[in-house]
């Protein structure tokens, strides 16, 4: 169970990177007026989701592993009792 969760979390950057690549495919020279503020705010939200998740995971890693370990222990307990 915990292995699946960790795998999913690790895959996040790759998933979002692919999405970003798709975005980049449309990048062309901007001759018109650009409002860099809007685009820069928008991309921060996206990047923030990716890297922010990483920061949160790093900060709470011990709690997450402890939680997953306790769940595993509970799940394994009944089989031991049989």
């Amino acid at each position: 169970m915990n292995v699946q969760w960790v795998g999913l979390l690790r895959a996040w950057p790759r998933v979002v990177s692919l999405a970003a690549i798709a975005l980049c495919a449309g990048a062309t020279n901007a001759h018109a007026y650009i409002d860099p503020g809007s685009g820069s705010y928008a991309i921060q939200v996206l990047i923030g989701l990716v890297v922010g998740a990483g920061v949160a995971v790093k900060m709470y890693w011990h709690r997450i592993t402890a939680f997953l370990a306790s769940r595993n222990a509970k799940a394994e307990k009944p089989t031991n009792d049989e």
Binding site: S17, C24, A32, Y33, I34, S38, G39, S40, I47
Partner: peptide, 18 residues
């Protein structure tokens, strides 16, 4: 990819939106 290429693309996408 994120801070430069996607950032440039995002600027382009949002040039007419706020």
């Amino acid at each position: 990819l994120m801070h430069l290429h996607a950032h440039a693309a995002s600027q382009k996408r949002h040039q007419s939106r706020r």
